Simulated assay, not measured.
Amino acid sequence: MKRLLVLVVALAMLGLVLGGCGGEEKKAEQVLKIGTMSPLTGPYAADGNDIRQGTEIAVEVMKEQGGIPGFSDIVVVPEDSACDPKQAVAAANKLINDKVNAVVGAYCSSSTIPASETLAEESIIMLTPASTNPKVTERGLPYMFRTCGRDDHQGPAAVKFMKDVEGVKSIFIVDDKTTYSQGLADGVAAAAKEAGIEVLEHDHVNQGDKDYSAVLTKVKAANPDLFYISLQNSATGALMVIQAKRMGIKAILMGQDAVYHPKLIEIAKGDAEGMFCTFGAIDKNAPAYKDFLSKYTAKTGNEPGAYSAYSFDSAMAYMMAVKAAGTTDPAKVRDALIQLKFTGASKEISYNDKGDSGSNYTVYQIKGGKFVPYWNSLTGEKY
Rank of each mutant, 00 (worst) to 15 (best):
R3H: 13
V8W: 08
V9P: 07
V9C: 14
V9R: 03
A10F: 15
A12W: 08
L14R: 00
G15V: 07
C21H: 10
G22M: 15
G22H: 07
E24Q: 09
A28D: 15
Q30M: 13
L32A: 05
G42S: 04
G42A: 08
P43I: 12
Y44F: 13
E60M: 14
Q65C: 06
G70M: 09
S72Y: 07
V75G: 08
E79A: 14
C83N: 05
A91P: 11
N101E: 09
V103H: 08
S109N: 11
A115K: 04
E117K: 14
E117L: 15
L119K: 05
A120Q: 15
S123L: 08
L127A: 12
T128Y: 01
P134H: 07
R146N: 10
D152R: 00
D152S: 09
G155K: 04
G155C: 10
A157D: 10
K160C: 02
K163H: 05
V168L: 06
I173M: 07
I173V: 15
V174G: 09
V174F: 05
A191P: 03
D209Q: 05
K220I: 14
K220R: 14
A222H: 07
F227C: 07
G237K: 01
V241I: 14
K245A: 12
D257M: 01
P262Y: 08
A268L: 10
A268I: 08
K269R: 10
K269G: 02
D271S: 13
D271I: 03
G274Y: 10
G274I: 13
A281Y: 15
K284Y: 06
Y289I: 01
L293E: 13
L293W: 05
T300L: 05
P304V: 03
P304L: 07
A306Q: 11
Y318V: 03
K323T: 01
T327R: 04
P330V: 08
D335T: 13
A336D: 11
Q339I: 00
K347L: 05
D353I: 12
S357V: 07
Y361K: 00
V363S: 02
P373F: 05
N376V: 05
L378M: 14
